[in-house]
Amino acid sequence: MFVTVQFGEGQSEIFNTNCRIINFIHCLKQRCNLDPEECVDLVDKTGELANLTDREQSVERASCLLRDRQIYILIRVIRGDGIEGHKYEPLLRDLGKNHPELAELLRKLSNPQRERDRRSLSRKGWQQRDANTNHTSRSKRAATPKKSSGATLRN
């Protein structure tokens, strides 16, 4: 049971997943020349996070999180405070050239609040525009005198 991890300048390493997650992460940092205090995770080419950061101290097997023979890309996780979410930086150079969809997905994951704000602003903008249009058309109708059909009732 193994996975391939890509990082750096097109480098890749094969890792055994038949070990505890805590040991897997330690080995990952060591073999990829990262600071032991660095917070890292893996993402597959479809953009699915392995969520190693949530289980850094776990004694579960890494094979329960990682699919056998899968290729993963090493990413740095910058933990946000309670308001901001985590930010994700790929540790594979030229990710945008080789995997543009994945680079875009990581950008969106790194700014979830910004994406939500952008979506809600666009929805509010449409709602506001529609409300203004409806309000204007109603006020024009109210201000316009009603035309009579020309027929009047006489007693």
Rank of each mutant, 00 (worst) to 15 (best):
I14Y: 12
Q70N: 13
W126H: 11
H26Y: 01
N33R: 13
P100L: 03
K147H: 08
L34K: 15
D35R: 10
G125Y: 12
I22C: 11
P36C: 04
R116F: 06
L65K: 12
Q70F: 00
R107V: 00
E13G: 03
E104I: 15
R93C: 03
C32W: 00
D81H: 08
Y88F: 15
Q6A: 07
K29H: 09
P112I: 02
R93Y: 04
D130A: 13
S12V: 05
G10V: 06
E84W: 07
K146W: 07
K140R: 05
R129D: 08
N16I: 05
N23L: 05
A143L: 02
C27A: 13
S139F: 02
S149H: 12
Q113Y: 08
E101C: 06
L49R: 01
G47M: 10
C64A: 03
D54G: 15
T46P: 05
R107C: 10
E56G: 08
H99N: 10
R123Y: 07
L52S: 05
H86D: 14
R154M: 02
A62Y: 15
N51L: 04
R20N: 09
R31W: 08
S139P: 03
L34I: 01
Q30L: 13
S149K: 15
A151L: 10
R116N: 13
R107Y: 02
P100S: 00
L102W: 06
I78H: 04
A151T: 01
M1F: 11
L66E: 02
E56M: 06
Q127E: 12
L153G: 00
E13V: 01
I14W: 00
V59K: 15
P112Y: 03
R114Q: 13
R154C: 03
Q57T: 10
R141D: 10
I83K: 14
K97W: 08
S149V: 04
S63G: 12
D41A: 01
D44M: 07
E9A: 14
Q127S: 14
R129F: 04
L153C: 03
L28C: 03
E60T: 02
N18T: 14
V59W: 05
R67G: 09
E104M: 15
K140M: 11
V59D: 15
H26C: 09
E89P: 03
R76S: 09
N23R: 09
A103W: 14
S58K: 12
G82V: 07
N23K: 13
G125R: 14
S148E: 06
R138T: 15
N132M: 14
L105T: 05
S12C: 08
K97I: 11
P145D: 08
I25W: 00
Q113E: 09
N134R: 15
R55E: 13
D35V: 04
E89L: 13
D68G: 11
D130C: 10
L52V: 06
V43F: 03
E9W: 08
E60A: 05
